[in-house]
């Protein structure tokens, strides 16, 4: 069995999870605590990948990130290369597809924070940034971990969007789920079974982790 697709999947999941957390934390805070026009529209847009078929999302991302798309052109003029069929391209696509999985647990966690704690911090002279890092983040560690775990797990199993943006280039964009699909197509059931089992174990461990965190939060 070729382990390279698993390594690419793991690398993709780690990189996109780290970047997603950086993006999701301020985004979730803005959606929960922000009072700006169009907040509900923004909230719905963030959640859209949850309900869209991956191929639909992948198609629009391909249009945007392709050589004639706005993002593709901007990337090409800045970095001098293509976004599609690259690891960077699939990372960006995976991040967009997993965004709601990172944002939702953070939103739930932020909503649980007693508003008076934020008011107290404000009265004590803390700036909005200080309130975020010194009150909101330390009181949302469970949500932060759940967000990271779900984003990681979702990216590990990513298929449709990755196939649309990255194709199946061995050693570059061929991830575990695509490798399983190809094993089945070529009737290599034993390899497909091994790789699937590894993904099942990873997914199960992730869910155990999320449940442990939820249980710890409930008892805290």
């Amino acid at each position: 069995m070729d382990f390279v697709p698993l390594i690419i999947s793991a690398k993709l999941a780690v990189v996109s999870t780290i970047l997603l957390l950086v993006l999701a934390m301020p985004l979730a805070a803005a959606l929960v605590f922000g009072r700006f026009p169009g907040r509900f529209l923004a909230d719905s847009l963030v959640s859209l990948p949850l309900v869209l078929p991956p191929t639909v999302l992948g198609f629009y991302l391909l249009m945007l990130m392709g050589p004639n798309g706005a993002v593709g052109k901007a990337w090409s003029s800045w970095a001098g290369g293509s976004l599609v069929f690259t690891f960077t391209g699939i990372t960006l696509a995976a991040m967009i597809h997993s965004l709601p999985f990172a944002v939702q647990p953070l939103k739930t966690s932020f909503q649980k924070i007693d508003k008076r704690l934020l008011e107290m911090a404000s009265v004590l002279g803390a700036s909005p940034a200080a309130i975020f890092f010194r009150v909101i983040v330390p009181n949302s560690l469970g949500g932060l971990a759940a967000s990271a775990i779900l984003a990681f797990a979702h990216t590990m199993g990513e298929f449709g969007v990755i196939l649309m943006i990255g194709g199946s280039i061995p050693g570059r964009t061929k991830v575990a789920s695509i490798a399983i699909y190809e094993y089945v197509e070529t009737m290599h059931y034993r390899e497909a079974a091994y790789m699937s089992l590894i993904l099942v174990i990873i997914s199960y461990l992730v869910l155990v982790g999320v449940n442990m965190l939820n249980s710890r939060e409930r008892h805290a």
Partner: peptide, 20 residues
Amino acid sequence: LPARKRRVGYVFQEHTLFPH
């Protein structure tokens, strides 16, 4: 003037200590 610039001490009705 926002709350953080007023330099007031405020004690709420119920406990609002930072739990962490």
